[in-house]
Write a protein that binds this DNA or RNA. Structure first.
Ligand code: FES
Ligand code: FES
Lengths: 144, 144
DNA sequence: TATAAATAGGACAATTTTATCCTATTTAAT
DNA sequence: ATTAAATAGGATAAAATTGTCCTATTTATA
């Protein structure tokens, strides 16, 4: 469904959001531990998210990653997925035709656009804040 | 969503089904042309589908690929996807956790299983025959 | 029986994705 | 000022996926 980079990106952003709500900035090392991801690879993903203004990075000692409260509420999963995997999830043909096109549809087009659209809606309606709900209480998990 | 191999597999099977309904067996070369896929790579995919008894292959001159009428009606997309991409589509966690598990769910679990299940249902309810409807009349397409 | 057409399959190559390593830069704190 | 902790980013490596090439085998037909 999503690339590894994207999966790490969502999990990392969610963890950063959780800690930002508690008022603390988190280091790459801590993030990678908490989401069980390869450190250096996660760094690349976070660079990309930082360039896309999804997370804020602070360099130097006591630096780290954080997300403003406004952004925790406003940023949706759809933006993270788009920043990392591009728009293929939203616009690609289920059978890999070069363009998904209702005028010359592949045999699964009608059924596929329905599912793709449900996925899109889900991603567009799930904020980082939504993602953090239940994490603190251990009702949901970002690793294992 | 699906691997290239899987996309080619679905398109190839659909084309074979179409021609089998017309009573003719088709060669690898023709298949690759009609679904716009790399010939040798498609051969590998078809080998796999043949081993999984999704398509029948006939060696030798005037050989080729075909699917019995019974199978055209009975084989569902779900079986093709499973034969090539395995069960990750059906059971994998949307955020890449090692196991999707309702007891220790990731933050998108509830929403994701719904979409995954819709996709699964769609694949389980779409037969190769369904895929061929509209192809002959050009209402649907397997290439471009 | 010889030939040609077709799939099977092994070996390899190219590309993309995933992952690691090292150095540069920034910044707080000593 | 120095040091230590942190991100940025370039270079590289490893692994997985995608794609190609060549030979073996099978089989209909001339
Ligand atoms: S053309 Fe294939 S999903 Fe739209
Ligand atoms: S645990 Fe992530 S989708 Fe089920």
């Amino acid at each position: 469904m999503f690339s590894k980079a994207c999966e790490y990106g969502i999990r990392a952003s969610t963890y950063i959001a959780l800690k930002s709500l508690e008022g603390t900035r988190v280091s790459l090392k801590e993030i990678a531990e908490k989401i069980d991801s390869p450190v250096a690879f996660t760094a690349k993903v976070l660079q990309q998210l930082s360039k896309n203004h999804i997370v804020d990075s602070v360099k130097g000692a006591s630096g780290g990653f954080q997300i403003t409260k406004a952004n925790i509420n406003q940023i949706k999963l759809a933006q993270i997925v788009f920043a990392i995997d591009g728009n293929n999830v939203y616009e690609g043909c289920g059978l890999g035709l070069k363009k998904c096109n209702a005028n010359e549809p592949c045999p699964v087009h009608d059924k596929f656009v329905q599912i793709r659209s449900d996925l899109k809606n889900m991603l567009e309606n799930t904020s980082l804040y939504d993602m953090t709900i239940g994490l603190e209480e251990g009702l949901t998990s970002l690793r294992r």
